[in-house]
C-alpha cells in the first residue's frame, strides 16, 4: 500500500467525518472553544493557541518527514498550498483583524 491513500467517495467522507470529530474534540479539550482564550494571545495573556498550533505543526511535519525518509510516504503526492505571497499576506492580515473582532 502506498501513502497517501487518496480516499474517494463514501470512504473519503467517512474519513472526513472521523477526522473532523477528532479535530473538534481536541480543540475543545485544549480550551480553544473559548474565544477569550483565543484572543488572549493578542493581549499577551493566553498562549494556548500558539502552543497547540505549533506543537501540531511540529508533530505533523516530523511525522511526514520521517515517513518520507522511510519511503512510506511519497511527498510528491501530498497537496501543498500554492504560494500567492501577497494575497496570503493580505488575507492573513484581514483574517487576523476579523479574528480579533469576532473572537474566532
Amino acid at each position: 500500500m502506498s501513502w497517501p491513500i487518496g480516499l474517494e467517495g463514501a470512504r473519503a467522507l467517512l474519513a472526513g467525518l472521523g477526522l473532523g470529530v477528532a479535530f473538534g474534540f481536541i480543540l475543545e479539550r485544549a480550551g480553544l472553544g473559548d474565544p477569550k482564550k483565543l484572543v488572549g494571545l493578542f493581549y499577551l495573556r493566553d498562549f494556548t493557541m500558539m502552543k497547540v498550533m505549533f506543537t501540531a505543526i511540529a508533530v505533523t511535519a516530523t511525522g511526514i518527514g520521517l515517513l518520507s525518509l522511510l519511503g512510506v510516504v511519497d511527498i510528491a503526492d501530498l497537496s501543498v498550498q500554492p504560494t500567492f505571497l501577497w494575497p496570503q499576506l493580505a488575507g492573513g492580515a484581514l483574517l487576523g483583524a476579523g479574528f480579533a473582532l469576532g473572537g474566532y
Binding site: P4, I5, L7, A22, L27, A30, V52, A56, V73
Partner: peptide, 14 residues
C-alpha cells in the same frame, strides 16, 4: 493529538 489528526489527514486523503 491535533498534529496526529493532521498527519492522518495527509496520509488518508493527501
Amino acid at each position: 493529538g491535533l498534529g496526529l489528526v493532521v498527519l492522518a489527514s495527509y496520509l488518508l486523503m493527501g
